[in-house]
Amino acid sequence: MLKLTERLGPIVVGQASDTLTLPYERRVRGRFKATSDAGRELGVFLERGPVLRDGEGLGTEEGDVIAVRAAGEPVVTAHVPAGLPLARLCYHLGNRHVTLAIGGDEHHGWVRFAPDHVLEDLASRLGARLEHHEAPFDPEPGAYGAVEHHGHDHAH
């Protein structure tokens, strides 16, 4: 079993000897066993903290590099115009402490989240066009970098 013990940050295509494709729920963990896309047994032994990002490299004790890939998984993408509609959608979804991926261009924006009928209803009421599909889920890392999930310990 290859032991992955070092985060290398974003790597260029071709730098890795193999890939490891994982859904979001596995990429939030620091220690687990997995099988690479080429069938090699891997043990991931990383410090707790940042989520493994699509395109990030992991180093083995032997000096090999394995590239992390975000797996396609069921998601909902809410499409809205850029500007205030996107800001309003992000505000209301983020106010519910859900993990979100955000993207778009100068004319159109989108917010991606795990399927949830309550969030879908909220997004629809805010004017979003919903798309249910499979796509990589690589959400925003949060305002504090390594902090992905936090306890609900602030006052209201």
Rank of each mutant, 00 (worst) to 15 (best):
L4S: 03
E6V: 12
P10G: 08
I11G: 04
G14Y: 07
D18R: 11
T19D: 03
T19A: 12
L20T: 07
T21G: 06
P23G: 09
Y24L: 12
R26Y: 00
R27D: 02
V28M: 09
R29A: 10
G30V: 00
K33Y: 08
D37V: 01
A38R: 15
G39Q: 10
L42S: 11
G43E: 14
F45E: 13
L46H: 08
R48Q: 14
P50N: 13
L52P: 05
R53N: 01
D54L: 01
E56F: 03
G57D: 04
E62K: 14
D64A: 14
V65Q: 05
V65D: 06
V65W: 02
V65L: 05
A67E: 15
R69L: 15
A70W: 05
A71T: 07
E73F: 07
H79G: 00
L84V: 13
P85T: 04
R88H: 13
H92K: 14
G94Y: 08
H97T: 04
G103N: 07
D105V: 10
V111H: 12
V111K: 10
R112C: 13
F113I: 00
D116V: 02
H117L: 12
V118H: 14
E120D: 09
R125I: 03
R129W: 09
R129T: 14
H132D: 04
H133N: 12
A135D: 13
P136K: 08
P141D: 14
G145E: 12
A146R: 13
V147A: 11
H150N: 00
A155K: 13
A155T: 13
